[in-house]
């Protein structure tokens, strides 16, 4: 069991290093989506709707994977934003956009913290 555990931890550390590299890319991408999402309120703008849906997809994945790689705070933050976005999309983009914007900012900071910490 000890050997299994150490073999697992060794592979997990390699995977975690790669995951951290991918967090950099995720941070950049989410930053671009955030700019698209909050620059206009015009729901006829297809880019706005697409940006929200794309962001939801990325954050859903981040919420699922980050906790498994040991980033529990990032997991909680992304899960909170995932649920907010889900409701926002479900309510035809009519709920409080400011709350989403604030939580988006918190998430981007949390990603930066995770990258710096490791």
């Amino acid at each position: 069991m000890l050997n299994l555990q150490s073999e697992f931890e060794e592979k997990l550390n390699t995977a975690k290093t790669n995951y951290l590299k991918s967090l950099n890319e995720k941070h950049t991408l989410l930053g671009i989506l955030k700019d698209l999402m909050f620059k206009t309120d015009d729901l006829k703008d297809e880019n706005l709707v697409n940006a929200f849906q794309e962001a939801y997809g990325y954050i859903h994945k981040l919420s699922g994977s980050s906790a498994m790689f040991g980033f529990s705070e990032l997991g909680q933050t992304s899960n909170k934003l995932e649920l907010l976005l889900k409701d926002f999309i479900k309510n035809d983009y009519s709920s409080d956009k400011e709350v989403i914007c604030e939580n988006f900012e918190i998430l981007l900071n949390e990603i930066e913290k995770a990258i710096k910490k490791d």
């Binding site: 697992f8 995977a15 790669n18 995951y19 498994m68």
Partner: peptide, 16 residues
């Protein structure tokens, strides 16, 4: 479909 979860899942299934 998520590559990150694939990675950790595969490592886990093979190791444990």
């Amino acid at each position: 479909d998520d590559k990150d979860i694939q990675t950790i899942g595969k490592i886990t299934l093979e190791s444990f």
